[in-house]
Design a protein around this nucleic acid. Structure first.
Lengths: 148, 148
DNA sequence: TCCAAAAAAGCAAACAACTTGCATCTGCAA
DNA sequence: TTGCAGATGCAAGTTGTTTGCTTTTTTGGA
């Protein structure tokens, strides 16, 4: 899922945000990734186009505030943004967090999940997003049981 | 779940770790918490007993390496340790991560969950731990849709 | 087309949380 | 009791994120 510069411009205007180089670049990166990216990941993907890191950071915040880039995952300690053209559009499906590389992927929709419980936690969990962590056997040994 | 100093001593010896003040203190904190704690959280709970932060940190690493404090959650970006007297004892049940306060809680066992899917992700997910994120409606507005 | 105000960019530096280096100290096996 | 591998404490290094401040740019209006 990418986005035309024109559409990006329009979206920004519609949300009373000025159209600037870095801003368009950030939107482009998010739109092309099509999965949740952290500030750091966005930065990496901006690579050669060397916009200022602080600017990228502040643009993510702005876009989030405008509803154009909601945070849909906080795995691994940092907020992860997705591009969301439609203001209220929800990005709510299971994510897979790799304990190895730390990447967060959107799981295909052919995943079947059902979770239910009783008691005090039930309410919270109704609002919870399912997040799966994975680890290959190697990683498990290395990181979880403490082998070096 | 707390632990007697004697038992702690014995466990350390059995794992060829020396018995030291900070080490016993770390074990005590983990054992009393009875839920996954990050380095930072352990530090907070050590509070008045002012052992050196670096020492606490290195003790967590040591305990993990010995299998006495496996990492069972990496929510919010930092490893979270639980005390585990039995060497191979697995601590594998769903956790609930509060997006508000960041705390990780062990969910009661009356939770029913089933997750299944086909395709390339299936393998990874067989090894995944279920982790639920929760957020009250307020937090959702404030943090996830970008209201200030 | 030009201008002023507000917003955004860029640079540098502050932070927070975690990690590591190193000199000194100590638990414990011999 | 003693030697020494293993542990501690202090300080400083990392990494990744966030903020302050000055300059530059965008944009609506003259």
């Amino acid at each position: 899922m990418s986005i035309t510069k024109d559409k990006a411009r329009r979206l920004l205007r519609e949300n009373s945000l000025r159209v600037t180089g870095p801003r368009l670049a950030v939107i482009e990166v998010l739109a092309e990734a099509n999965k949740p990216l952290s500030y750091g990941e966005v930065l990496k993907r901006m690579g050669s186009t060397d916009w200022d890191p602080a600017t990228v950071y502040r643009n993510l915040v702005k876009l989030r505030e405008a509803g154009l880039a909601p945070v849909v995952s906080r795995a691994a300690g940092s907020d992860r943004y997705v591009f969301s053209p439609g203001k209220g559009a929800v990005h709510r499906h299971p994510h897979f967090v790799c304990d190895d590389c730390g990447e967060v992927s959107c799981l295909p929709t052919n995943l079947t999940s059902s979770i239910s419980m009783e008691g005090p936690w039930a309410v919270s969990i109704q609002q919870a997003a399912v997040q799966l962590r994975g680890e290959c056997p190697d990683c498990m040994d290395r990181k979880y049981l403490g082998r070096t």
